[in-house]
Computed example of a mutant assay.
Amino acid sequence: MHLFITILTILLLSFTLLSLIKHDYWTFRIFDYPRLQKLVLSVVCLFLLIFFDDRQTIYQLIFIGLISLNILYLFIQIVPFTPLGKKQILRAVTDLPDQSISIMIANVYQDNTNSGGCLREIRKNNPDIILMLETNQRWDNDTKELEKEFPFQVKVPLENTYGMLLYSKLELTDSAVYYLVEKDIPSIHTAVILKNGTRIQLYALHPTPPVPNENPRSTERDKELLLTADLAKEIQDPVIVIGDMNDVAWSYTTELFLKMSGLLDPRRGRGFYNSFHAHYPIMRFPLDHAFISTDFKLKQIKRLSNFDSDHFPIYINLQYEARAGSQQESMEPDAEDIAAAEEKKL
């Protein structure tokens, strides 16, 4: 038992220390993901150290102190994404349908054949815009009936698990597909016209994750996010960035993206809304995101029902309010953040 507790303590402390190293290689970045899991295991470990390890040694006291600090650090990192944290995006008080936009983000899992389940979830929630990710030609064929109800589309079906299908009831204009970093990883850039005529800019992304079988480094993912942050910062229109970012809401890169783009995260002050992995409850992380400029307020955000994908869909309903920009505050980068962002874009 003593050996087990010692190994568990060392592992948990090592996992936290590895995540603090700002290196792009996957062996460091992968430990950004299970922050809540590390917190829970650290609490269990502290309990074991106090009540099941009867050695009265200096090493035990050191382990108790270190694991307590680990718990405190992880709690401080997680609490902004709970109802205890400060909300970045305020709740819309009045309902203005002509200034609203609802979006469903669904990584469908390319090999998933349950397109009928996906269509039922779309009809049930009735979004204005649907972004489907990991969509190949089969998924394009299986969802063509959506064209009747969603007359505006931008489609990039691919067989490499990075295809995108964007359907919209609202008018799309100046739509384009870009390959910002990798030649086979697309992003969709389009203007959306709200019912009241307001033009907003929408960016749909799906960068590669830092895992051995995909991309051993987070370099390309981080670069795509930060290049998009530059676009969002420069444009005068209200901005929404959506997609499977393959990064958790609390990571250093996501926070750097928010600082450099001036966008807000609706999860802050509300909850995790974990979207992946749908089949393993103890290993779930918030990977599918919607980041929003200060011109919007939140009407609703929720996780939808799974339809045999490895991701849960995410639904968000926003309301454009011109005065919201003076009521909400984005994060500001310091000199170190700016330097880090510039280095990652090289």
Rank of each mutant, 00 (worst) to 15 (best):
P83L: 03
P83H: 06
L84N: 05
K86Q: 14
K87T: 05
Q88Y: 11
L90R: 13
L90T: 12
L90K: 13
L90A: 10
R91L: 10
A92F: 00
V93Q: 13
D95M: 02
D95R: 05
P97C: 05
Q99S: 14
I101W: 02
I101D: 05
S102A: 13
I103D: 03
I103K: 03
M104W: 06
I105C: 05
A106G: 13
A106W: 04
N107K: 07
N107P: 12
N107R: 09
N107I: 08
V108M: 11
Q110G: 09
D111C: 00
D111E: 13
N114M: 06
S115A: 15
S115D: 08
S115E: 06
G116A: 11
G116T: 11
G116V: 02
R120H: 10
E121P: 07
E121F: 00
I122D: 05
N125Y: 13
N126H: 10
P127L: 00
P127N: 06
D128K: 06
I130G: 12
L133E: 15
E134G: 07
E134H: 10
T135K: 05
N136D: 15
R138C: 01
D142N: 14
E147L: 07
E147V: 09
K148C: 00
E149G: 15
F150A: 03
V154G: 04
V156H: 12
V156C: 12
P157N: 11
L158K: 14
L158T: 09
N160S: 02
T161G: 01
T161R: 04
G163W: 01
M164P: 01
L165T: 09
S168Y: 00
E171A: 06
V177E: 07
L180G: 14
L180Q: 14
V181H: 12
H189K: 08
A191N: 15
L194F: 08
N196Y: 09
N196D: 15
G197K: 00
T198A: 05
I200L: 15
A204H: 04
